[in-house]
Nucleic acid binder design. Structure first.
Lengths: 336, 336
DNA sequence: TTGTAAGCGTTATCAA
DNA sequence: TTGATAACGCTTACAA
């Protein structure tokens, strides 16, 4: 019922092969012929059948994006960067969210990927996540966003550096009793969590400061978690004068806890986050800004590039994007 | 090179037709045969080729989600609801963002949809948007989320009611000089914007109160816009004592503007929003909560249901989900 | 219940 | 530069 390539070919008085070449911009087609075919295709309102094209060519023209969350700021912002690139490249974006340790039941993504997409973009799955490795075992072109893994192309920030910068800022302000709100109790190496914590430690050590284990709390990268974590810190016998929260959202929660305790960020306790979340300006939060949308954009560009120059292997280069400390009112010099 | 249905058929000593039936759970297959085929398929690590299946069957097993924004709270939250349903239904989710009046250049979505998906979910595009109508003209199964249009299935809240509830709450607190922060200057009927404003007007009129045109400002549904709008209201000769912001994000911006003016929400000026945004609790914002994830979930379920019972036409029923006023600290009785 | 075989709409190889 | 034609891998009447 729908117009097919045959209809166009007949109307143009050429073979389907020529129509196929002409419409795809392949070389070795007479300019006049091509033009005529294009016009006829337009007139007939011809649309290629992706299924047929995929079946015949073996390419799907689709990329899957695998993410643990959709409705969280970091993830949706990365996603928007990815989407704009894929749309420009004319590729379909298949969105797939996966279970996480704390998540609900979800189908494993790997089986749903085979024969279905040309490449995969994975956002911030822990490096030892089983589902991540099942996907990698598929051995298709893949780029990681916000994680690194030996031999796999990735786009990240330098999380160690981010942790250092944030901590050093607090140290520079004269703070010595510095607390930290991390993600989860068990940190895997090479996660944002772990690496930012390393940066924290390095900065502390370099300044000759002790990291007090009592001043570490877990915020699970959520607002509510940050609130609980800060509450835990505030109820210490000897609370910190400054806190490094590993994400802005946890910092927001921390701010809430402070208020509940009658404390004001930047006046009573200094607080620094990581992200550059939309709301951080609003809440006057000092933060280490990361170019989240670019993370997605650059990873997508790399993957698309790899697929198009489809010849060779991935170059497996890992891109590291810069971060920037944005000082606002939530941090201030330690009061004597 | 990959395993095909033929390989499975040979290994099982049956025809490809039987394998196809067995694996898809069609009736009229001997239980033993089916089981054997399933086992062999698993052993061989067989994965069906979606392209071939789609080409042969005419069904794509995919649904497109069209949205003006990806990285905004409302949209990403709707999207997460949609995704969970589609994943459970085993359908692919194609994500596509479109230009909006204020947006960047984007390809029109309609051509990218044809022959590519079985149905479309559209999030909160204005009812007269040209791209929306191009998509509708495709005449494929479609559900709208957050908009209504005669004859098209949709899932929304009652925006008029939401506006009424919010406004009535302020009126009940004794406020009479009530400002409103809407989206854009030109409101189309049947948009959230327009309808919430109608609710506002109705509540005001019912209370015998005047709507002062000077107390209407535009916030474009963004934080920054809300801030500007509130600033405009505050610099009136006679500022409002209470403000209805049509979204939580605009309300956040309004809060910021208040603080800049040394005012405190709930003490100096009452403020109510709409959404139930994650941050609204944190900021102690009174708001009309809408079940955003359910909006996406229910629309997706309806569409999937329609596709599966593929027989008949859409029933074009429009589902209206309930909202709930959540009173927090940003609203308080008018001080005599 | 199972098999046969004709599509489905392209792409790509090989000739012309 | 163009055309024939054999894949591509599945689904689905229709037969058996």
């Amino acid at each position: 019922m729908a117009i097919t390539i045959k209809d166009v070919a007949d109307a143009a008085g050429v073979s389907t092969a020529t129509v196929s070449r002409a419409l795809r911009g392949l070389p070795n087609v007479d300019a006049g012929t091509r033009e005529r075919i294009q016009r006829i295709a337009t007139d007939l309102d011809y649309v290629i059948s992706p299924s047929a094209s995929r079946l015949a060519s073996g390419r799907t023209g689709s990329i899957a994006v695998i993410t643990p969350y959709i409705a969280r700021w970091f993830f949706s912002t990365v996603l928007s960067g990815v989407e704009s690139v894929l749309q420009n490249a004319g590729m379909d974006l298949l969105l797939m969210s996966v279970s996480t340790p704390d998540g609900q039941h979800r189908l494993p993504p790997a089986p749903r990927l085979r024969r279905r997409v040309d490449g995969v973009l994975i956002i911030a799955l822990p490096p030892h996540d089983q589902q991540l490795h099942e996907v990698l075992a598929l051995n298709m072109p893949t780029s990681l966003i916000g994680v690194t893994l030996e031999g796999i192309p990735s786009v990240t920030i330098d999380d160690v550096l981010a942790g250092q910068i944030a901590t050093q800022h607090l140290i520079n302000l004269g703070h010595t009793r510095i607390g930290v709100i991390t993600g989860a109790p068990v940190e895997e190496p090479f996660t944002a969590d772990h690496d930012r914590h390393r940066g924290f430690q390095q900065a502390m050590n370099a300044a000759g400061l002790q990291v007090d284990p009592a001043l570490e709390a877990y915020g699970y990268f959520t607002i509510a978690g940050g609130e609980q974590a800060m509450t835990a810190l505030l109820t210490q016998r000897n609370p910190p004068t400054a806190v490094f929260a590993m994400s802005d959202e946890m910092a927001f929660g921390a701010m809430k806890a402070m208020r509940s305790h009658g404390l004001q960020p930047g006046r009573d306790i200094s607080l620094v986050g990581v992200d550059g979340h939309d709301m951080s300006e609003f809440l006057d939060l000092t933060t280490v800004v990361q170019p989240v949308q670019d993370l997605g954009r650059i990873a997508a560009e790399a993957l698309v590039g790899q697929l198009q120059s489809s010849g060779g292997e991935a170059e497996a280069d890992s891109v590291i994007l810069p971060t920037q400390l944005l000082v606002r009112g939530s941090t201030s010099p330690l009061k004597g």
